[in-house]
C-alpha cells in the first residue's frame, strides 16, 4: 500500500526571521495589563478622594462684601447729654455717612438687656449689633456721642484701615496701658492682620473711638469683652477697664490689635488728658464734658459744631 509521503522539507530553509517582539506573550496580555494599570489608577484616585473627603473643609466663614464699607455706631445716652446736643451728634453722623455711603447705627441705653450692669456696656453690645445688622459691612466704627466728625473729606477705610497705611501708623512695642505696663503691643504685627484699631490717651486705652474689622475675630472679641464675668466684676471704669484687662491677659486679642496715634480717630478738644485736636483732624472729642454738667457738652462743642457744619457744607 502506498501512503502519501510527507512533502519533503526544502533543502533551502527560509531565512531566520527574528520574532517581532522580545516577549511574544505580551501582545495578548497587553489588554490585561492596560486593564490592571487602569484599575490601579482608579484605586489611587479613590484613595485620594476618600482621604480628601475625610478631611473636613475649613468652615467657610462669611466673607463680608464691603457693603456698606463702614457702619458708624453711636450710643446716645439721654441721661448724660441734652436732647439738643444729641440731635447735633446724630446729624453729624448721618451727614458723614451719607457722604461716603456708610450706614449708621444709633443705640439708646436700655435697648439691650445688660442684666444690671452699668449702662456704659451698651457700647459693646451696640457694636455687636452692628455686625448682626450689617453682616456685609467691612468695618464697624464705634464713635462715642462725645465726638464729632470734623473732616468729612477723609474716608476712614482709606485714611486708617488700609493694611499698608496701618503698617506705618501702628505703634509697635508700646506699653498697652500708658506709663509702664509690661504688656506691650506686638512688634511684628502686619497691617493685614489687624482686626481692631484703637487709641490711647494719657490714662490708658480709650474706648471712645475704635474701629473693628468685620469677621469671626470681631465677634469673638466683642463677646469676650461683654462676658458676664467681667460685667459682674467691679471694674472701676466698667467696660474700659475690662478692655484693658482682656488686652493684657489674652494674647489672641493683643495680637490683632493696633494702637494708632490719638489724633487719627480720637483727638481731644483739650490737651489735658490726651492729644489736642488740630485743624484737619478727622475727629474731635470732649471726654470730660458729660461729667461736668448737663449743658457743658453743648457749650464746649459749640465752636466745633459750627466748624464741622461749615466743612460739610463746603465739601
Amino acid at each position: 500500500m502506498h501512503f502519501a509521503l510527507p512533502p519533503r522539507k526544502t533543502s533551502q530553509p527560509p531565512p531566520y526571521i527574528p520574532r517581532a517582539s522580545r516577549l511574544p506573550g505580551l501582545r495578548r496580555t497587553r489588554f490585561k495589563l492596560i486593564a490592571l494599570v487602569g484599575l490601579a489608577l482608579l484605586a489611587l484616585i479613590y484613595v485620594i478622594t476618600r482621604s480628601n473627603n475625610s478631611q473636613h473643609a475649613a468652615p467657610n466663614t462669611h466673607a463680608p462684601r464691603g457693603n456698606p464699607p463702614v457702619v458708624l455706631v453711636t450710643v446716645l445716652d439721654a441721661a448724660k447729654y441734652s436732647k439738643a446736643y444729641l440731635e447735633t451728634v446724630r446729624e453729624n453722623r448721618i451727614n458723614y455717612a451719607e457722604k461716603h455711603g456708610y450706614q449708621t447705627l444709633f443705640a439708646k441705653i436700655g435697648d439691650y438687656s445688660l442684666n444690671g450692669s452699668p449702662g456704659s456696656w451698651t457700647t459693646v453690645v451696640a457694636a455687636r449689633d452692628a455686625l448682626t445688622k450689617y453682616p456685609d459691612c467691612r468695618y464697624v466704627w464705634y464713635l462715642d456721642a462725645s465726638g464729632f466728625v470734623m473732616n468729612p473729606a477723609l474716608k476712614v477705610e482709606e485714611h486708617v484701615m488700609q493694611p499698608a497705611r496701618l503698617d506705618e501708623l501702628m505703634k509697635k512695642d508700646m506699653p498697652v496701658v500708658p506709663p509702664d505696663s509690661i504688656i506691650k503691643t506686638f512688634s511684628h504685627l502686619k497691617g493685614q492682620d489687624v482686626e481692631l484699631v484703637l487709641t490711647q490717651d494719657k490714662e490708658g486705652l480709650s474706648a471712645g473711638s475704635f474701629i473693628l474689622r468685620n469677621g469671626e475675630w470681631a465677634r469673638f472679641f466683642l463677646e469676650t469683652w461683654f462676658a458676664p464675668i467681667y460685667r459682674s466684676y467691679n471694674f472701676q471704669k466698667a467696660e474700659v477697664h475690662a478692655l484693658e484687662h482682656i488686652v493684657q491677659w489674652h494674647p489672641t486679642i493683643l495680637s490683632r490689635m493696633a494702637i494708632v496715634d490719638q489724633r487719627l480717630i480720637n483727638a481731644y478738644n483739650k490737651g489735658v488728658r490726651g492729644e489736642e485736636y488740630k485743624d484737619g483732624d478727622l475727629i474731635v472729642r470732649f471726654p470730660d464734658c458729660a461729667a461736668a454738667d448737663a449743658q457743658a457738652c453743648e457749650t464746649e462743642s459749640q465752636s466745633f459744631v459750627q466748624a464741622s457744619r461749615r466743612a460739610f457744607a463746603s465739601s
Binding site: E216, F220, T224, I229, H245, I246, W249, H250, P251, T252
Partner: peptide
C-alpha cells in the same frame, strides 16, 4: 486645631474669672 481653639485656650483661664 483652629484659630477658634487658640482663642478658647487663651480665654479659658482668666484671672478675673
Amino acid at each position: 486645631r483652629s484659630e477658634w481653639t487658640d482663642r478658647l485656650l487663651d480665654v479659658w483661664w482668666d484671672p478675673v474669672a
